[in-house]
């Protein structure tokens, strides 16, 4: 049973989204209105778009493509095109999570930071070689506002100003390293 460090707790802020990896699995990490941190496979069950391309609205995570709303349990609570809940349960792939020592831990099984063994998988934006970091971060930064500079629509957060500040912080961190 292996648990991994997947993010720094302080990086997982309200209304924003952190991308990371667990082994070869892409992760989306977000803090919900309850204050709890959720670590999911970064893949929308609908058309397999990255959930991290969507928005953290606090009470739910919104899929960027069709606006599906995922509650903190991972279940789809609203499909806009149906104007309601889907007839049968649809859920994101949710990982077991714990917060300890300022780190966010996750596991495919039961997450237990103390009993963790094996190679820890550090969050890409902290420990990975800078090229790899660029690979992961840039793909979410590119074309952030392909529709122009008026800021009328910005992905992927609930609050455009905050997201812009956050992105410049990530860029700075990349440039420093």
């Amino acid at each position: 049973m292996t648990s991994y460090v997947v993010a720094l707790e302080k990086d997982v802020r309200d209304y924003s989204i952190v991308r990371s990896m667990m082994g070869d699995k892409p992760l989306v990490i977000w803090r919900g209105a309850s204050g709890a941190i959720n670590v999911w496979l970064d893949r929308c069950p609908h058309r397999f778009v990255r959930l991290s391309a969507g928005r953290n609205m606090g009470g739910y995570l919104e899929g960027v493509y069709h606006g599906w709303q995922f509650e903190e349990s991972g279940k789809v609570m609203l499909v806009p095109a149906m104007q309601g809940r889907p007839a049968h349960d649809i859920s994101a792939t949710v990982y077991s999570t714990a917060v300890a020592g300022g780190f966010v831990w996750a596991s495919e099984e039961e997450c237990s930071p103390s009993g963790s063994a094996g190679e820890p998988c550090y969050p890409v934006h902290i420990a990975a070689p800078v090229d790899q970091v660029r690979l992961h971060v840039d793909s979410s930064v590119d074309h952030l506002t392909p529709w122009g500079v008026d800021g009328s629509m910005v992905y992927p957060t609930g609050d455009p100003a905050q997201r812009r500040a956050e992105l410049s912080a990530i860029r700075r961190r990349l440039e420093e390293s």
Partner: peptide, 16 residues
């Protein structure tokens, strides 16, 4: 073109 750029954003963010 701006409609297509929006689509490009999501097309390039599929896991597969």
């Amino acid at each position: 073109q701006s409609i297509s750029a929006q689509d490009k954003y999501v097309l390039e963010r599929h896991v597969h």
